[in-house]
Design a protein around this nucleic acid. Structure first.
Lengths: 234, 234
DNA sequence: ACTCCTACCGAGCGATCGCTCGGTAGGAGT
DNA sequence: ACTCCTACCGAGCGATCGCTCGGTAGGAGT
């Protein structure tokens, strides 16, 4: 019981804590370039310039362009899995609470770390060999965490879904999809969005949206758009 | 009233009809390559070889690599929008029916034409200039069709959502997400999947899943995976 | 004073990229 | 018989790609 305490910071859990600039500068430069142009559309010279390094300077830190992608994707999956486990642990034995916190955690991650999550999801085909296999394994593990909780809830009679497996996939897809459209300068904070998504997810399982917390204004009108086709307010 | 009849084939509507090999061979070769390696990861030589043409032979049909992508993406968006309008038209004046058929149509398209939909969604950043703007406009139009029907349903008191705009986005995301994981050789037919997704979507709006049609077996265990990280049973 | 090691870089190599030059083969029209 | 057009292709150009060679600068350890 005391094991989880080490992970807690104040009265909030680590899975809710998101600090800025978590990646080393070089990986951050690579991530920004990948988000803008894609892995194959990015040149090593662009990444080096963005990180204020020469090309050989870059290769001192990473063996290849592929190694940059692998490091980014591994970081993303590790971070998400640890947070997900923390969230479930915090929920205790209530399946309904486990589900609510896990979906909140998923949504929170895909909003706060949208660039990281976007690349981890969209550049699977650019990963070579074992890295791809390992990445897909992590992704499947994440899907299974949701599957298991939903199945448990079905057994306990808390959840009601005709096709739990399909519902589970739909829920995970709508959460991971956040990374495709979320904007850090939008009106909706990751925390507010996560609560809304947890409620939407609960409804697909026949559970009323239950105890809400706060409510905010509605969405804006898009103007220009960026590389990912999201509205650009910058 | 008679205007729509021309679009009907037998007793089913055109928006439900999906034939094989809809793209000209050269575009199909390009699409297959883009799905496998991404736009920037695909070389013009690969596409030419797959289409059994020389490189200059390819350039006789399309002016550039970019033109291939533009043609594919335009075809996809045009096809989806026409089908969506047909689906709504078939539904008549009932908002609940309009919603059900539109979601079915969305899901059907993203399952049947998953390769097309996958590229149209994932290669937005590879589109240059006006093509990108036009594509994003189409995509926003598609999102608005769902928004409008949900808003109408809210006004009529048929639908119940705390945040209709967020719910609408979540629903569209889960449907477009089908293109990322759907396999033509899986156990679930596009038609069955579409019915399930329509029911899941209805639940997020506080509408019971209502009249179901048939029910099928559950999902399989993944073995190997392909370029998109989907389970590979080939 | 010397040896290491870390953290870089100027110049450039070989391969591959998108695309083009200058053609040909064969059918349709007159 | 001649002109035109469509549908191609062998060879290769200039640019750019990922990556490397052979260095240097400066701090830490002895």
């Amino acid at each position: 019981m005391k094991v989880e305490t080490a992970k807690r910071v104040g009265n909030a859990c680590v899975w809710r804590k998101y600090s800025e600039n978590i990646l080393p500068p070089l990986l951050q430069a690579a991530l920004d370039s990948f988000v803008e142009h894609g892995y194959h559309g990015t040149t090593i010279r662009t990444v080096a310039a963005r990180a204020k390094l020469s090309v050989p300077g870059l290769y001192h830190h990473y063996a290849s362009k592929q190694a940059l992608l692998v490091a980014i994707v591994q970081f993303a999956m590790e971070d998400l899995l640890v947070r997900s486990e923390d969230a479930i642990a915090e929920a205790g034995s209530s399946v309904e609470e486990q589900f609510r916190l896990l979906i909140e955690c998923l949504a929170l991650f895909h909003a706060h770390r949208s660039e990281l999550a976007f690349i981890a999801a969209s550049e699977i085909r650019s990963l070579e060999g074992e890295s791809r296999t390992a990445h897909i394994k992590s992704r499947d593990k994440q899907q299974q965490m949701v599957d298991n909780i939903i199945n448990q809830g079905m057994r306990e009679g808390i959840f009601d879904a005709e096709h739990p497996k399909d519902t589970s996939r739909a829920i995970v897809t709508m959460c991971t999809g956040i990374a495709q459209w979320y904007r850090h300068d939008g009106e909706l904070s990751p925390e507010e969005l996560a609560i809304r998504y947890a409620n939407i997810a609960r409804m697909t399982l026949g559970v009323g949206s239950g105890s809400q917390r706060r409510s905010v204004i509605t969405a804006p009108t898009p103007l220009r758009t960026d590389a990912r086709g999201r509205p650009d307010r910058g």
